[in-house]
Simulated scan of single mutants.
Amino acid sequence: MPPAGPTLRQWRLGHELRKLRQQAGMSATGAAAQLGVNTANISMIESGRGAISAERLRTLVGVYACADEDLVDALAAMTGGRTRGWWDEYREHLPAALIDVAELEHHAMQLCAVLGMHIPALLQTPDHARALFAQVVPPLRAYEVEHRLAFRIRRQGVVYGSDPKPYRAIIHEAALRMGFGGPDIARAQLRHIAEVSTQENISVRVIPFSKGTFPGNGQPFDYAHGAVRQLDTVQLDVHHGCEFLDSEAQLGKYRTILERMEDCALGTEESRDFINHIAESI
């Protein structure tokens, strides 16, 4: 039986509808009257706990006088209530935030990761990932490590599968030299990155120590592009889990950081040579 709480995608749909209502200067009671439902229905939809059809959504945003047809189409595509994905198999075994990350990646149009101290999750080898999980605080049990490892490998299907998404990674040299798991694992990890970076959909660029300071203060983040810019999402890895940011101001900030970090990074070919050089020196 699926959990009672909304998925990240359901929550985001409701959140966007609430923003449109507020921008229209309309109360939940007023919106309910226009739609011919009670206020509780509007509250349930906006909290992500109540489903809404594409047809009714279009009626609702018409009441809000939203003229952005691309946004309306994108929101309509998010309707229909909860749909199960492969990640639902792990809901009883992993923190909810990790499930949200997989759902976010699955529905994104393209993905970008910025890392200062770690290799991006979608580019990690199983041995490298297992070495990282061994350092989790509090310690994970052996079966918990295997659950997380299997989940991470399944997540990587968004960039290695039959219909791979465009993926950009900006990695600081520090992350390439951390050496998690020892020399053999670290060398194999770097060679893996260099190899997959030749795929048409994957771009890996490195910021070397020689560049000095760089924007963002080293905060790692993932940027998931939605069907329209308003539906982009920034995901932050923090000590207590994950945080998801989607306000216009927050998205604008991280877009700027991303652009400036790309300005600091080596080109793709130069980055690949740089990664291979570090691998050979281990």
Rank of each mutant, 00 (worst) to 15 (best):
C242R: 15
L98W: 10
Y167L: 09
L13R: 06
T83P: 02
I42P: 04
S247F: 09
S47L: 06
E259W: 05
A186N: 03
V234H: 10
C242M: 14
W87I: 10
N201F: 00
A33K: 13
A76N: 01
E173D: 07
I171D: 11
V37Y: 15
E248L: 02
P220A: 13
V158F: 05
D184R: 10
V228D: 01
P95N: 05
Q230M: 07
V72F: 00
V196W: 06
L149I: 09
P208D: 11
G218P: 04
Q124R: 10
A129D: 00
L140R: 09
P183V: 02
K19A: 11
F180T: 01
G36T: 03
N41S: 09
Q22T: 12
D127Q: 09
E46H: 03
Q189I: 06
L71A: 02
E243N: 13
R205I: 07
P126V: 06
A279C: 05
G25F: 02
S281N: 07
W11E: 09
L236Q: 14
S197M: 11
Q135R: 10
G14Y: 03
V228G: 00
P164V: 08
D184P: 00
D70K: 08
M117Y: 14
E262R: 13
K211T: 13
V206W: 08
V137Q: 12
A51M: 07
T213F: 01
R191W: 01
G36M: 04
H192S: 02
K19S: 10
Q189M: 05
C242H: 15
E248D: 11
A113L: 07
A227V: 04
H225S: 13
N217A: 15
D68W: 07
E280N: 08
E269L: 13
R49Q: 13
D184V: 10
Q124W: 09
T256Y: 15
S210G: 09
D127F: 10
